[in-house]
Design a protein around this nucleic acid. Structure first.
Lengths: 303, 303
DNA sequence: TGGCTTTACGGTTTTCGTAATCATT
DNA sequence: AATGATTACGAAAACCGTAAAGCCA
């Protein structure tokens, strides 16, 4: 019995698939299959029932699962306890939204590199729904996206809240305009792709207010969205703090609506069944470091 | 990090010596040394300080030790939980006294073989003090000898008590003779080797009574001792239950002394720091199976 | 010198990935 | 067909034991 075997078994069981487990552990299916076969040979009991296409866990497997989890947790604990003063090693895959990527993310990376120089970060910038799917499939260790998520396998912890307001270019509407249903017919709305959390919130707001909003343009890049709005193509909702430089320079103006659009709660999402210390430690860093109330450091303050 | 590495480290730390740990794990010193070196390389911290002749554990090693113990315990738990319905595997080295070996030991072996067919038993029949030393050095997993032991590293649990009486052959002394100091000058005493627990008890009794007892003959075999006493060579102390057939057939007679010699408490001794399930499980079997109140099954009842 | 540990080296075993095969949907 | 898991096999790496060398009492 080796730790690698138990790890292979654990993730195969948790993810319900040998191939997903293999991907998560960065080995081939073949290798993972053999690790589990060897564990079964060692214990003398089958851990999976290979009757169907998907391997389904046996009773013995269920009994082992809990122990295996504690074993991995313990290994993780050993490393975080000893390993160069609690320094993390290995690699960590995680997902962030574009907004997160362009706000506090550099500070997060800097801090992680300082405190855990041997940890390789592998960020994925995608829309919320895709990141949730990847997390479900075990392809990510955690994700920071607007939440909460509905999945029963995922836990979440709020790390920040952003206030959204309708905005437009000053050529299109004067600052402080009180929006009426008529405005929405007149001014095309620009949103993120339909599977972004942001778009879902816009839709909820629309339904609540009862106006019909024609989707003039859909884009999967928040930066592109802001550019389009500043170019006068249409209206959209942005976090006020995020676009503060543009509001200050007058390239964007905030509009007034009743009710105001919505606030998004950014959450740290992780697999509830993930026993590794890296998830816990990075969650604490995110919690301490979370600061969404800043514009992108890429933007010149005076622009 | 592998379980084997942690196991090597654990026993090296507990036994305070690489060579003893290597012997216990049935590998060469070289191999054990490398396992620990690899673990140190993996964790990035030295676990032992090799300045002196003996490797002495570092602070990091002390921190790891507890975790490693829990890891081995967990591995053991997994095996006992899954492995063919709680069946033990591997091998188990233990020590017993000659008396134990010739009384309930066959029943113990039968039961272990029935309940744990894959467990290889390696009994060592030696005198108490040698078995205690072997247990100290980690060369045994447990020992069943008269106790308790004084070592702080060993735990013990009483599993049986035997009543000893002075005995002789009927040719030498009539049954029921009340022993006086004069008898001890007259009749040579035959005892086990000086490092047997039994001999120590005899010595304590002698000091208490205040008689001088010349050691006529020392032997390291209880069976030989009985033979010698029956042959009329001298007197000795035996458990009454053990030699019941000889008392019944009149080949031995019990003598009376004030105070009576002593009772020996047979105990199951094990290393307090041994986290393996095999020790716990076998202890329970011994507790259930312990029956010293029987003569050796090797002796014809009518002899 | 003698006990204890590490290093060097070879031979065996294990492990891994590619690719092919088998089975199920 | 497409997906998911196992088997075959060659290459690379790990592991173990023997033997030699260091190192402190």
């Amino acid at each position: 019995m080796t730790i690698k075997q138990l790890e292979a078994f654990f993730w195969a069981a948790k993810l319900g698939s040998f191939s997903l487990a293999a991907a998560r552990l960065c080995v081939t299916q073949s290798s993972l299959s053999k690790r589990i076969a060897e564990l079964e040979a060692d214990l003398g009991k089958p851990l999976f029932d290979r009757a169907g296409q998907r391997a389904v866990i046996t009773d013995a497997g269920v009994r082992l699962l809990e122990h295996a989890g504690r074993m991995l947790e313990l290994e993780s604990l050993i490393r975080s306890d000893l390993d160069t003063q609690g320094t993390l090693r290995g690699s960590c895959r995680f997902g962030i939204s574009e907004l997160v990527a362009s706000t506090w993310f550099p500070a997060f990376v800097a801090r992680v590199r300082r405190e855990h120089p041997d940890l390789v970060l592998e960020p994925h910038v995608e829309l919320t729904s895709k990141l949730e799917r990847m997390l479900e499939r075990g392809e990510l260790d955690f994700a920071i996206v607007p939440g909460p998520s509905a999945s029963p396998n995922l836990s979440h912890e709020k790390v920040g809240e952003l206030e959204y307001r309708w905005m437009a270019s000053p050529e299109r509407l004067p600052a402080g305009t009180v929006l009426t249903p008529a405005h929405f017919s007149e001014h095309p709305m620009i949103t993120l792709s339909a599977d972004a959390r942001l778009s879902r919130e816009v839709e909820r707001w629309r339904a609540h207010v009862g106006v019909a909003i024609p989707h003039a343009l859909v884009c999967n890049s928040l930066a592109a969205l802001i550019t389009l709005v500043m170019a006068g193509v249409g209206i959209s909702t942005f976090p006020t703090a995020y676009v503060a430089p543009f509001l200050a320079s007058g390239r964007l103006v905030a509009l007034v609506s009743d009710p105001p659009p919505y606030n998004l709660n950014y959450c740290f999402h992780w697999r509830t069944d993930d026993p590794r210390a890296v998830v816990r430690v990075l969650r604490e860093i995110v919690r301490a470091e979370a600061n969404f109330l800043m514009p992108s450091p890429l933007w010149p303050a005076a622009t």
